[in-house]
Simulated scan of single mutants.
Amino acid sequence: MLEGDGIGPEIVPASVLVVDAALAAAGAPPAEWVELPLGASAIGTHGDALPASTLAALEGLDGWLLGPHDSAAYPEPHRSKLNPSGGIRKHFDLFANIRPAKSFDGADAVVPGTDLVIVRENTQGFYADRSTYKGTGEFMPTPDVAIAMGIVTRPAVERIAVEAFELASRRRGRVTIVHKANVLKLTTGLFRDVCREVAARYPQVSVDDFHIDAMTVHLVRRADAFDVIVTENMFGDILSDLAGEIAGSLGIAPSINASHERAMAQAAHGSAPDIAGQDVANPIAMILSSAMLLDWLGARHQDPALARAATLIETAVAGTVRGGVRTRDMGGTAGTRAFAEAVAAGVKR
């Protein structure tokens, strides 16, 4: 567990509380939590927001909880470095960012009934911190000119498309490809075309595609009509925040970042320094991210107890919200810890 910055030291322990309860209820062995330094506190103790000792420790683990970071507030030179989560993603090639958006009964949603998953390619595109082997994809030939490279490769698209179609095969059997091939003909055109090629391996899954600008409109109007959305890095980052709000709040938007060997649970939202330490942050996104991690670990290790623990968490979160226990951003009065305790009690029931 890496608590991170801002509300991280509140929402990560809240998630640990729920995970421990779910593992016990599912008959799984208890977790042995390894606390590792990261973020502003690590700068103070280790001289680096992402210490080498933390990366070395993660090498021996196949799953972890990562709290949010507030890298924009770090002192230089740390502020200009690759942020901690980006550094971890790049180091471990966590190529798949899986971001569900699901509305809850009893909570306001822009589009009730939303239940979709955005599958985001996590290593290429226009994100300079992840798109090159060494250095970044951004450069300035003069002080007045800034250039960014957008990189798309067939192997990277193929592996993320497989993730999307495998997921859709376990859900409602529909994949939507999001691109901008009418303008970025070569890069996002390649993304669309390779996804279409992978689709041919999954005849049981229906496929359609939209341009990114049109997709934002479709989400606002009819998010409940979509199942799995696969897209490139930057488009996926933007769409997942939009989808989280459409489902009810960015505070309920979970995610995992995964390779074939490791997965990192990380809420889609930021560190919210304006409410840090006040016990008002919504821990749902981090709790559900933890459930996603348990489900991923259960599938990787063929361990049904871990998968059951994940289901218990998801069911208990939904039941807690439906029962009227909610944090401030969802119109309730429960604090971070109190909400987590209510979910843990729901898990035990």
Rank of each mutant, 00 (worst) to 15 (best):
G335P: 00
I98T: 04
A31C: 06
R159A: 02
V16W: 03
D241Y: 05
M330Y: 05
H69N: 15
T336N: 07
H78R: 13
E10V: 08
P68N: 10
A199N: 02
R300A: 15
G332R: 02
G6W: 06
T45E: 12
L2E: 10
V19P: 02
E35R: 15
G86H: 12
N233P: 09
R201P: 01
G87M: 08
A22I: 08
M215Q: 01
A281T: 04
T45H: 04
F95N: 10
R79L: 07
D224G: 06
A21E: 05
Q302N: 14
A318H: 10
S71T: 08
A265S: 12
R79C: 08
R221V: 13
L184V: 12
F139L: 15
V12P: 03
D20E: 13
L186M: 09
G277T: 13
P203A: 14
K134E: 14
I284G: 03
V12Y: 11
L294C: 07
F235H: 04
A161L: 02
A310G: 02
L23Q: 05
S240G: 05
D303F: 01
A265P: 14
T311L: 13
R130L: 15
A268I: 12
R192N: 09
I313N: 06
S85V: 13
T176N: 04
G236Y: 09
R221P: 03
A168E: 00
L17F: 04
K134G: 02
T123G: 06
G335W: 03
A334G: 08
N182C: 11
V12S: 08
I11L: 11
G346I: 06
G4I: 06
E59L: 09
A156E: 15
I177R: 03
V117E: 01
K102M: 02
I229L: 10
